[in-house]
Design a protein around this nucleic acid. Structure first.
Lengths: 237, 237
DNA sequence: TGGCTAAAAATTGCATACACTTTTTACAGT
DNA sequence: ACTGTAAAAAGTGTATGCAATTTTTAGCCA
């Protein structure tokens, strides 16, 4: 049986319905953002399968845009794809995880150094104000809120380097690392320690001491301890 | 007219024919490699359009895999895509280009430092031998061959850092930068200068002097001069 | 000639169909 | 029960079709 006429009709209706739901950008962009968010925020864990049919059903689209979204997520390193196999939330070896933490430390170091040399007066002021304000969160033990502050703090550093490409690299790396650094601030005393480390960075930046800022930012990432603590959670799957 | 039966037949035949042509990986992977190569080697210039229909015809596939390939190239930063518009080989502002060169210099610096600290005896030996051998190419003024050597030399550095993630970042950045650093070794005296700079890096690495290696590698990228010289060629389009 | 507009053509976005591959299930023989 | 295997089910890869959008072309008027 030939359904071309019916198809057109059906298609139209769906199109109209979709149009209302528009949030931002194309269907694929939305899906990429939505799925990336699920991975980065831990609602999906390394190893979890992402099959095209389920995703298509979930987002109420056909498999075509789903596949494009998965392709993009694959290029971003958030999912692994192998021919004729379902996509899977990227899981990495301990060695590779370590290399990501180290790369992150190096990049943070570079950003902090450049930020110390280049931040505008306004940027420095905002960084310091925001940092000081976070002391309250530490005292309250507000882990969630501190995590939000922490993300902003680092984003300020990355932006402060005034280098668009480095910003992209470090942002991409941070996203890929996110699934493996969950539960970071739940370790006892971690909040206060993080604050002190931020303080070292801020102080160096206010002095425009690039070398000190780089050193402080590098050690803030704490390659070794984080990597091992965190890996357990990744393997639980 | 309904062509479903015919479709099946036709499809089958094409499938069989394609199977013979397999080179490596899936159709999309092959296309990504092929197109990326065209961009990186300059057979396609920044600003050039990549329309799906022509590409589909060129590679003898339907638009579906073409779209996936373009999506991936977009994620890699080699092409720009906007909704309802043809993909275009990425062109960048002078500011962004400068940020890429700077990022590259920083990354090379990190790689050189880590390489100086971590390269195995074999890696150091191979680096030095290969470097010494390139002196002949300089004397002959063999630009093409030196360019090949140069690529290998830097790859050795990146690998020598013994950090998989940094390797990925620097490789990705190098690919994105490639379209804008064409014709590098055609400047008079550039070959000899490049050799001397390599020599500084190699010497520092052989001494396991990370700081010196980093400094030498950083200045080797020559952010400012390259950026301006090279930008002309990008704009010619 | 120089725009302005509207129709036509070209092109992209997405849905659907079907071949091919992988995974699961069911069942036979041991 | 236990394993091997074949059939069924599920899932991926890609071609094709149509709606929506952008680009081009043609014609019009000042």
């Amino acid at each position: 049986m030939c359904m071309h006429a019916v198809n057109g009709q059906n298609h139209s209706l769906k199109q109209v319905r979709r149009r209302e739901i528009i949030r931002a950008g194309t269907t694929v962009e939305q899906m990429v953002r939505a799925i990336a968010d699920m991975i980065v925020t831990g609602r999906m864990l390394p190893g979890d399968r992402l099959d095209e049919i389920s995703l298509a059903a979930r987002f109420e689209v056909s498999r075509t845009p789903v596949r494009e979204a998965l392709r993009e997520l694959g290029a971003m390193g958030l999912v692994d794809r192998e021919p004729n196999r379902s996509a899977v939330v990227t899981n990495v070896t301990e060695t590779y995880l370590h290399s990501m933490f180290e790369a992150m430390a190096e990049l943070e170091g570079v950003c902090a150094r450049l930020a110390a040399e280049r931040m505008t007066v306004d940027e420095r002021r905002m960084l310091e104000i925001d940092h000081r304000a976070s002391a309250r969160l530490v005292h309250q033990g507000a882990e969630e809120d501190y995590a939000v502050h922490n993300t902003e703090f680092h984003t300020r550093l990355y932006r402060g380097a005034h280098n668009e490409h480095i910003y992209e690299l470090v942002t991409q790396s941070r996203a890929r690392l996110a699934p493996f650094r969950r539960a970071q601030f739940r370790l006892p005393g971690r909040l206060a320690k993080s604050y002190d480390e931020h303080d070292m960075i801020v102080t160096a930046i206010m002095r425009a001491d690039g070398a000190a800022a780089a050193k402080a930012a590098y050690s803030h990432v704490e390659i070794v301890s984080d990597a091992s603590v965190v890996f357990a959670s990744a393997r639980e799957k």
